[in-house]
Every structure is written in C-alpha cells, then in structure tokens.
Amino acid sequence: MTTSISLQSWISLWRVPGIGCQTFHKLLQKFGDPESVLNATNNALKQAGLTERQSNAILSSQLDNAKADMLWLDEENHHLVTFHDEKYPTLLREISVAPPLLYVHGNTELLNDPQIAIVGSRNPTQSGRNNAFEFGRHFANTGLCVTSGLALGIDGEAHKGALADNGATIAVTATGLDRVYPASHRQLAHQIVEQGALVSENPIGTAPTAKNFPRRNRIISGLSLGSLVVEAAQKSGSLITADYANEQGRMVFAIPGSIHNPLARGCHKLIRQGAKLVETASDVMEDLAAQIDIETFNVPPESDSGNGSENDDPTVSNDDNSRLLEAMGYDPVSIDDLVLQTGLTPAALSSMLLVMELQGLIASNGRGSYTRISG
C-alpha cells in the first residue's frame, strides 16, 4: 500500500525543476524509488548522470513543495497513480516518455480499459462536429472508452457523444486538475468525472501553457489502441497526436472530407501517409478486433446520420427533396446557387433546408452555406 510519505516523495521529485520524464525514470532505475532519490548524496546523484544544477535542485527540494497536491488528494475521488502502481495503464507504460505519475479525478479503473482516441480541429465544420459526436457515441456503446483532450470542437463533441448514452470517456488535460481549460467546458468536465475520468501528468496549480498541449497529446495516443482524426488542418495539434500514435506503434485512422474543405487536408495527408481511411465506425472496429476480444463488446448496428428523408412539410414534394439533395452534393453550396440549380424559391428552400438539417441530412456551415452529409 502506498503511504502518504511515499506519494509526497513522488510528487516532490516530479516538481523539482529540470527533472523531466526521462531523468525521472533514469533515477528510478538507479535508486528504486523517489524517497531514495531525495535522500541520496550529491556524489550519488552525479554518479547517476545528473548535472550539478539538477543535483542541487534535488538536494534543496522539500516535501513541502507537494503540499498543494496532497491537499488536492484529500478530496473525494482524487487519485495519484504512480508508475509503480498496478493501476498504471499498461499501454501508456510502453511509450518511450511515459509520465512517471498521473493525477486522476474520477474512475481509475478506466485507465486500463480498451480506449480509442478521437481528436480534431478546435474550429470544425458542423458535419465534423456531428461525426465526432456520432463516432464517440457508437464507440462508447460498444464498450470502448473514448479518450480525448477536452478541447473545444472535435474533442468536446467526442466526449459528449460518449456521455450521451452513459458511456465512458477520459479527458487528458494540459493543466493541473484543479482547473478546467477551456473554462467553457467546466460543466462537461463535471459530467466526465461522473462517467469517466480527468487525467493529467501536471502538478496541481499548473496553468495552460503552449508547451503542455503537445506533451498532453502523447498521453492521449499512449492510452489508446488507436487514434481517429475527424477534421484537421495541415498544421494541427491533432496531427501531433497522430505522429505520436505512429511512433508508439498504435493505429491511426482518418475521416476524409471535401477537397475544398481546409479542415480535410490534414486527414488526407494522414491517409496518404498510411492512416486507414474511415467511413464508418465498423472500419475502426475491424482493425481493433485484432487487439481486443471483439465478441465481448456490444457492437450496435450503425445507422445513418438522420432520421429518414421523409419531409414533414406537406407543401413540399419528395421529388423536390430529392432534387435538392442531388443539387447539393457533398461540398459546401450557397442558397443562391441552390436556387439556380433547383428552380425552387428562396422561401421554399429555406424551409426545406431547415427540415433536412433537423433530420441530419445536411449541415449548415454558416453564412448561408450548406453541406450534404447523408441521404
């Protein structure tokens, strides 16, 4: 059983300036545990390969520097999972820069459950949001845990999809778990704690800084059997997650999009580099079946995005609906162009587009532009 002093030692060593993941693990191999490191002599630390600066930083460290973390751990459902803990996730332990410890708010048992990462743009199209939500919900319904980064856009929709039918989800954050970033996801974070877990390698009090977000991505991919990129520009943090997944020997999946959509270019790049092109959740489950016992998962039948193509407006014929969908295609198109292509009036079009959007057949891209996503 891990003692309070032992946990303090893990935190205290982790908080020492200049001691990162690689150095921490090197010290564990040399001394066995953080308590022994903190009690080591200057000469012993130097023999372990530390610089003068690192050695002095350890020698001057105090257990009191873990006070905020220990107070946080006193609260309900707050946990610290160390690299020596049996609850430490097996897949994450395999990566080259595994975090020495994990702060967890929520269910620690999920850490070793089969997980699928879903990541993507912070500013997705509506169809991207829909895809993230529906894929998240489908995976959660199978029994997979959906893992993402709590960010705006695709991440948030993936979490929401998993939560929709009481599924499990893990959010890996780039801050200390005493704060929520972005603040607008505070309520979502509370829901995640109820049905899953918030996870971070960062000590309590860590603010959101640019360098922590790419580091966070290696944990998202490291926890997961594979990573699905829904929408991403060519220069995107989501591609960093995919790169980490490749380095870690994990599968990478990508959803293609319109050649005119800038947020599809990152996914197309990944597909050219060997990521699996995904059209349905079954495309992902086929590859995961080699790593998990698929028969133990409840794989629901996949449905289309909408609720059928019946029109609720009796003044509009099914022929009009069919003509409108055919005119739209799957690239963004404006109402003005649809008027020219269909011969329908702007008033009739606006009514039909609203109904079709509610049915999930199309998505609004803003500024009077629409995209067909089903039907």
Rank of each mutant, 00 (worst) to 15 (best):
I240Y: 15
E231C: 04
I271F: 02
G222R: 03
S224E: 15
Q273P: 03
I255M: 10
S227Y: 03
P256H: 06
A245F: 10
S236V: 15
G249D: 04
E247Q: 14
A245E: 10
Q273T: 00
V252A: 01
S224K: 11
R272Q: 11
L223M: 13
I259Q: 10
T241A: 09
G266T: 03
Q248T: 07
R250M: 10
N217Q: 15
A245K: 07
S236A: 11
L263M: 07
G249R: 00
V229Y: 09
S227F: 09
I240D: 12
A245Q: 08
S227E: 06
S238Q: 09
G266V: 04
E247M: 11
C267A: 06
K269S: 11
C267D: 06
P256I: 01
S258T: 10
G237N: 09
I271D: 00
N246K: 10
G222W: 15
M251R: 09
N217K: 10
S238R: 06
Y244I: 05
S236W: 07
I219F: 08
C267E: 06
A264G: 08
G266N: 04
G249V: 08
Y244K: 13
D243P: 06
A245S: 14
L239W: 07
F253H: 01
S224A: 08
G266S: 03
S258C: 10
S221A: 13
N217M: 11
M251S: 07
S236Q: 08
V229E: 14
F253P: 04
Y244V: 07
L223D: 14
L239C: 12
Q273C: 01
S236N: 09
N246W: 09
N261S: 13
R265S: 09
V230H: 15
G237R: 04
S224I: 02
A242W: 03
Q234Y: 07
I219V: 12
S227P: 10
G266F: 06
L228E: 10
L239S: 06
S258R: 02
A242L: 12
G257V: 05
N217F: 12
Q234V: 14
I259W: 05
L239K: 08
I271T: 01
R218T: 01
I255E: 04
N261P: 06
A233D: 14
A264N: 02
G249H: 07
S258W: 13
R250P: 11
G226P: 12
I219E: 05
T241M: 07
L225P: 08
P256Q: 02
S227C: 15
Q234D: 12
G266L: 04
I220E: 02
I271S: 00
A264V: 02
Q273R: 02
G237M: 10
R265E: 08
V230I: 15
V252C: 03
R272D: 13
T241P: 08
A242S: 11
